[in-house]
Amino acid sequence: MKLFDTHCHLMDRRFEEDLEEVLARARAAGVTRIVVPAVDLDTSHQVIRIAEAHDGVYAAVGIHPEAAGEVPDGAYGEIERMAAHPKVVAIGEIGLDYYWDSAPRPVQQQVMAAQVEIAKRAGLPIIVHNRESTEDVLDLLARLRPGDAAGGVMHCFNEREDVMQRAVDLGMYISFAGPVTYKKSDDLRAVAARVPEDRLLIETDSPYLSPHPFRGKRNEPARVALVAEVLASARGVTMDEIARVTWENGHRLFRKVEA
């Protein structure tokens, strides 16, 4: 059984001391493909270095909405150049975050839009962060239509079924992380059961959002297996089936990832 963690922040300082051990545990759990999204220009360089150093690990480059207020001069050109790297498979993590509101909302929207256009020119999918900004995220996706180009994924999905369906209709994939395993997440599991099979992905968002029964502890990619197990139960299929489907979907979306 092969598993694909489509969102894991291995450049986070919490992995500085034991990254090799973390990756060894991932491989032992069957996790042989990992996408590591950046959050700003500096981490975009970091994730490329990590991807270059490890088989099965790939990078996404971009500016997170929490960093949208401090985009350096020339950043977009640099991101577009990095997008040509053979191990850069997406533009991300990009999006909108109205919970932290670290940058004015129009600025966040402009930064996201600029990076969607980079993704379209580069022929890469986008990785979308959405926190308390659903309508504006969907409106921007509907206007810029990245789903008509290389597509994208709504990462760490935690929304209603109608939002899921609107995102799918816009050409997006839907990825679930640790929250789908939490005891009070019955509504989210019901949504997960309704995602079209060809749009379903799994992730850890490590080091954040560790799944049950490790909630509150540092997350790591090996635990994507726990997300897969819960999705299998919610959808009434086997773990092997969820692994197969999400593996195939991950490779379909992130086309530069080696099969």
Rank of each mutant, 00 (worst) to 15 (best):
N158D: 15
D12P: 11
V153N: 13
L201Q: 15
L19P: 14
T246M: 03
R105T: 10
L231F: 03
L19E: 12
V168S: 10
Q108S: 02
R252H: 10
G216I: 05
V107F: 01
V191W: 03
D42T: 11
M154D: 01
G92I: 08
R14Q: 15
I34G: 06
H129Y: 04
V227L: 08
D139M: 11
R49F: 08
G92W: 03
I79P: 01
G69P: 05
E20I: 07
H85T: 02
R218E: 03
T6G: 00
R199D: 03
T43N: 06
E197I: 10
F176E: 13
N249Y: 10
Y58T: 05
D205C: 02
V237C: 07
E70I: 07
I94N: 09
A122D: 06
R255W: 01
S185F: 00
G151A: 14
D40R: 07
R121D: 12
A53R: 15
G30Q: 05
E66T: 13
G147A: 03
I94M: 05
A60T: 09
D12M: 07
V31E: 02
L201V: 11
V36T: 15
A243K: 08
V227M: 03
F214Q: 10
I127S: 04
K256S: 06
P146R: 04
P213G: 14
S233N: 12
D148W: 06
V116Q: 13
G250H: 04
I174D: 00
F4W: 05
A150H: 12
D42C: 07
H54E: 15
L10G: 13
